[in-house]
């Protein structure tokens, strides 16, 4: 059988492209550098006052919750304010203390620290509905097509992530902490990969974990040798006074980015990069302290500056 040279060339090229891509995704990162590509909000403008949650859509629009003026804001790719919605209150589309934000398709999902449920807006910031949920929410991720993963305060019993549908109906639960030590309003941060596996960074424990949907532990990592955070007794409650980790996010290759807390050399600035298998690959430092990390679908990294007045967007360069 004779193969035409043109077809052969095309086949070879395709093999090269596929193999080079697989090599890139499988290659372990040795170093991460970040390059600022956008900065929204400064000390001299009124763009942001205290941003809490951020999400970006596939078109590059950036959505930000602002806790200081109780609003949801939409910025274009150049960082210009396109629209603002919300105000203080508990009515439809209103906030008392906006906190977490996620984006999926045409919908934005927002939580409020002081009120239960999830507020749903469209990408034009038109309020659509409130998804009922009986507890306050401290974790939120949009998963799959009709699923939201939520985490609530741990009072008694195990810490768990609950998967709910768009009507607030519970679909399943994933237990990540069998025996919590005392009451914790906010105990972990989570990310979810396309397969539905969970990556959990504990706020007050030296522990980063990957768990399957069923709750089965895949791997666990301690970056500070199991060091315990300091605690203090306040009104008979023993409460931690510092954090181990503050947030976790996944890049498009499945690498795990963890923002370090008070135990880090540079608190709220050190970012630990772990492979999908949980191996520590490298560490880099944010220019300013941040309360969260967000990586969009195009692999841009977002973090905080100026104590929440500024949102920074970075291109990540892997070596």
């Amino acid at each position: 059988m004779k193969i035409k040279p043109a077809i052969l060339t095309a086949l070879m090229a395709a093999i090269l492209v596929v193999s080079s891509h697989s090599v890139e995704s499988a290659a372990q990162i040795k170093k991460v550098a970040i390059e600022e590509v956008l900065s929204i909000g400064s000390l001299d403008d009124e763009a942001l006052f205290q941003w809490s949650g951020v999400a970006a859509d596939a078109d590059g629009f950036i959505y930000v919750l602002d806790a200081m003026d109780y609003s949801l804001k939409k910025f274009d790719q150049a960082g210009h304010l396109v629209k603002k919605a919300g105000r203080k209150g508990q009515g439809p589309g209103e906030f008392m203390a906006p906190r977490l934000l996620d984006c999926r398709g045409e919908s934005l999902y927002a939580t409020d620290q002081n009120t239960t449920g999830i507020l749903v807006f469209d990408r034009e910031l038109v309020f659509k509905k409130r998804i009922p949920y009986p507890l306050l929410l401290f974790n939120l991720r949009a998963v799959g097509e009709n699923c939201l993963a939520v985490g609530s305060p741990v009072f008694q019993g195990p810490g768990k992530v609950v998967l709910i549908d768009e009507e607030g109906k519970v679909k399943s639960e994933m237990v990540f902490l069998e025996k919590p030590e005392g009451m914790l309003m906010d105990s972990m941060s989570m990310a979810i990969d396309p397969k539905g596996d969970f990556y959990i960074a504990f706020l007050f424990l030296d522990r980063i974990e990957k768990r399957e949907k069923s709750g089965r532990l895949v791997w666990s990592q301690k970056l500070f040798g199991g060091k315990k955070v300091e605690k203090k007794t306040i009104s008979s409650y023993v409460l931690p006074t510092e954090t181990c980790y503050k947030d976790v996010a996944l890049d498009r290759n499945g690498n795990v980015f963890v923002l370090g807390g008070g135990l880090s050399r540079h608190p709220s600035r050190d970012v630990y990069v772990l492979s999908p298998a949980g191996e520590l690959l490298t560490t880099f430092m944010l220019p300013d302290t941040s309360h969260c990390l967000y990586i969009d679908s195009r692999n841009f990294l977002y973090s905080r500056a100026n104590d929440g007045i500024t949102l920074k967007k970075y291109r990540m360069i892997y070596h």
């Binding site: 000390l43 009124e46 006052f49 602002d66 003026d69 203080k88 100026n306 104590d307």
Partner: peptide, 18 residues
Amino acid sequence: ERRAKIVRKKWQGFMKAN
């Protein structure tokens, strides 16, 4: 000095919203 500016900026947003 930076902290003083941040506090003023945040108060400005808080004051208007409330």
